[in-house]
Design a protein around this nucleic acid. Structure first.
Lengths: 205, 205
DNA sequence: GCATTTGCCTAAAGCTTTTAGGCAAGTGGG
DNA sequence: CCCACTTGCCTAAAAGCTTTAGGCAAATGC
């Protein structure tokens, strides 16, 4: 019998494609075996179990995302860089919803540390070098950016922003504007009103 | 034989508890039947199928969250209201991770419209009445707040902010400060730099 | 008290996961 | 070249989850 040429890498790749087509939680060892026209048990020589397969897909997605991020950040700074990285996440999620969902998989601490995850926070930190934040504010800002990117993309993918005006694209741009402004003007103390910058346009009584 | 007293409501409730204990995606018709000490097929008189069960849990979670939100917002405005609602989401996710995951379930458009989902955007909109935004900026801001709340809580729950300093609680407070400042000072035009307010501290070339 | 409805049951088919053991296709040394 | 060995995919089988169909007993109502 001709061999199918299975490897852990090919399985992860095909699993990622499958995830984009049918959704990450529909990715199953059985479905993947069907796709290779191979018996189910054959896959177990290449992946430990179903969880292992999903983890491999997640690591693949995290790495693809980080690669796209690096490429997008090259030669950019400030708001330009902010927008570029933000769009990487959003575009990736739209092109590859299954992979994006995979990237959200909870990894074990060791797996997480060995993944491309740290590259992601480093990229965000690189953007913040274009703004003037000192530690620990930079860390807070890293977390803010991560939250907005992930949160917006998730909600948009879940359909939260469709069927309402204004369109999602417009909100996305305005939110990036707002983020940029927030970073340029990071509040120095957590107190009450009017601490943001020199002039606060207090438009309402 | 004594009857177990199953109803769709009790199943959803028990399913929610199960989700908090073992994770939402480990919630299964079989596991729930075990919990009621009842045969699996018996549940199918009360829920259409596994998907239906998960949907009922999701609706329960969305409603609980909305109820907590309403209670927290009562009598508050401005940053006080912002903080209160934000903490409702974060605290709920920490207390009930399974339910919170359930609330993220992708619902059909009809189910979504009939759910407590709209109450959530209304609550966010109510907060924004304490800031001076006009449409369509208010909608953009609703989406920003939703993204930050959901994004931060998801990442924190996924363990993204543990094992690093400063602690998550501190970032959370500083991010709420930043959001408050952003809303008080919402950028009026999406153009380049320096559009945020009177003074822009342009720290980098 | 009897008919009807309701609730939980048994039975069964189909799918996914995972392990164990087998045979044949590739690989390398003599 | 061929023999031994490794590797890759196979069959077989057990166990769990999902879902449907049909049955009997408990609750409900007239």
């Amino acid at each position: 019998m001709a061999r199918a040429g299975l490897t852990p890498e090919r399985l992860a790749q095909a699993g990622a494609e499958l995830a984009d087509e049918v959704g990450f939680d529909q990715v199953t060892v059985s479905a993947l075996a069907r796709r290779f026209d191979v018996k189910v048990a054959s896959l177990y020589s290449h992946v430990k179990n179903s969880q292992d397969l999903k983890t491999k897909i997640a690591l693949l997605a995290l790495e693809e995302l980080a690669d796209r991020g690096s490429a997008a950040l090259a030669g950019r700074a400030g708001k330009d860089a902010l927008t570029a990285l933000a769009n990487v996440y959003r575009d990736y999620a739209r092109e590859h919803p299954g992979r994006y969902a995979a990237a959200q998989l909870r990894l074990s601490p060791e797996a997480a540390a060995a993944s491309a995850g740290p590259r992601h926070s480093q990229m965000t930190r690189a953007i913040l070098r274009g703004y003037d934040l000192t530690e620990p504010d930079e860390t807070h800002a890293v977390r803010l950016l991560g939250s907005v990117f992930h949160g917006y993309v998730s909600l948009e993918l879940a359909g939260g922003f469709s069927h309402s005006t204004p369109g999602s694209q417009e909100s996305w741009l305005r939110i990036l504007d707002a983020l940029d402004a927030t970073l340029r003007n990071w509040p120095t103390t957590g107190a009450g009103r009017g601490t943001t910058s020199a002039t606060t346009v207090d438009q309402q009584g």
